[in-house]
Computed example of a mutant assay.
Amino acid sequence: MTDKWHLLFLIVLRFHGYSYTRRFDKVELDTIVETVSDLPDPVLDPAVQEAFDVAYDNIYAFHDAQKPVEKIAENMEVSSAIFNCKIIPVCISSVGLYYPGGTAVLPSTALMLSVPAQIAGCKTIVLATPPAQDGSICKEVLYCAKKAGVTHILKAGGAQVRMQYAHHVHSCIRDTLSYQPMSGGSLGSVFLGEWTPESVGDYASGTNHFLPTYGYARMYSGVSLDSFLKYITVQSLTEEGLRKLGPYVATMAEIEGLDAHKRAVTLRLKDIEARQLSNLR
Rank of each mutant, 00 (worst) to 15 (best):
R275A: 06
D41I: 04
H170L: 05
L106H: 12
T213E: 13
G135P: 06
Y220T: 01
S189Q: 11
Q160Y: 10
V95F: 10
R162D: 07
P46W: 06
T35Q: 09
G17A: 08
F52G: 00
S19F: 14
L13Q: 10
Y18G: 03
G149S: 08
A55K: 12
L269G: 07
V12K: 00
A120S: 04
K71M: 03
P131F: 05
Q164W: 07
V115D: 00
S80Q: 12
N279E: 15
M219C: 08
L277G: 04
P247E: 06
V27D: 13
T103L: 11
G135W: 10
H152C: 07
V190N: 12
A250E: 01
D53C: 13
D30Y: 15
G157P: 00
G257L: 04
T103V: 13
L13I: 02
C85A: 15
V54R: 12
N75R: 08
S114D: 03
V78K: 09
Q160K: 05
L13R: 08
S186K: 06
L225A: 03
W5S: 11
P181D: 01
T109D: 04
T233V: 11
Y220K: 07
C85H: 01
G96A: 14
F52S: 00
G121P: 02
Y98F: 14
G184Y: 06
A132D: 13
V169S: 07
S205E: 04
F24H: 10
I153D: 05
G188Q: 03
T35D: 08
Q133M: 10
P107T: 11
R23H: 11
I87M: 10
M112K: 04
G101Q: 03
A110D: 04
Y214E: 07
G193M: 04
K230N: 04
M1Y: 03
H168I: 05
R268N: 13
Y216W: 13
Q164D: 12
Y231R: 06
K155L: 01
Y99N: 12
D226S: 13
S79V: 01
L277V: 12
P42R: 07
Y231F: 15
G222Q: 12
R263V: 05
L10C: 09
P68H: 00
I11C: 11
K230P: 02
A250F: 00
L111F: 02
S199F: 14
R218H: 10
P130K: 02
C172L: 10
A47D: 12
C85E: 15
G215R: 05
F83V: 03
H152V: 14
P100H: 11
L97P: 06
V105Q: 05
D175F: 15
L211S: 00
I125D: 00
P247C: 01
R162N: 13
H168P: 08
H152K: 14
D175R: 06
D226I: 15
M163T: 08
N84Q: 10
V33D: 05
D271N: 12
S80W: 13
S37K: 14
H152P: 09
Y203M: 01
L192W: 15
A145T: 03
F62S: 06
S183R: 08
D134L: 11
I119A: 04
L8T: 08
M182I: 14
T176I: 09
T151I: 09
I32K: 05
H152G: 04
A128C: 11
T213I: 13
L242T: 00
I32G: 04
D45Q: 09
